[in-house]
């Protein structure tokens, strides 16, 4: 069941599977494909996303770039969380990359893949409470200010 947990202003959706170190999430779909995106923590760190430049369809090894994501102050890869084939990129991001900020776990997905080694690679993901705690720890250890709530106005 999908539940959202807030760490500061950043949201973790507990039904998804995460590679916290790469700020990526995956959703295992009923048809055997995997949907991949960046986490709410990542989009908060990046700020308004200006471009999402996805790789073309084809095989990618775990850790290779699936897309280059650019904001005004950051540019970096969405690393492949699994080995597999890119089936499609989210075409909606071409015209409106800001949807990654508005809906990182929904309409802001980046690519859909066909896994090649999921039996081996599934063990690397965290989900549910374990994912929330791992992210909480990372945010604390690295002092990720992007998730800090703005102090309430007491006036």
């Amino acid at each position: 069941m999908s539940e959202t947990v807030k760490i500061g202003k950043c949201i973790i959706q507990t039904d998804l599977h995460y590679l916290v170190e790469d700020h990526s999430w995956v959703r295992f779909n009923d048809d055997g494909s995997v949907t991949v995106g960046i986490t709410d923590v990542a989009e908060n760190m990046a700020g308004p996303i200006l471009h999402v430049y996805a790789r073309k369809k084809g095989m990618r090894q775990k850790g290779q770039s699936l897309a280059t994501i650019e904001s005004g102050k950051w540019v970096g890869p969405l690393k492949a969380p699994i080995t597999g084939e890119i089936l499609e990129a989210n075409a909606a991001l071409d015209k409106d990359p800001g949807v990654v900020n508005r809906s990182p776990y929904g309409e802001g997905w980046v690519v859909r893949m066909k896994p090649a080694k999921l039996d081996e690679e599934r063990q690397f993901f965290l989900t549910g409470d374990a994912a929330v705690e791992a992210y909480r720890k990372r945010i604390d250890e690295q002092n990720l200010k992007a998730c800090a709530e703005v102090a309430p106005d007491c006036g």
Partner: peptide, 11 residues
Amino acid sequence: LFYAMAAASMD
């Protein structure tokens, strides 16, 4: 540096 990072992100 931004361009360098962009190129690196493209493997």
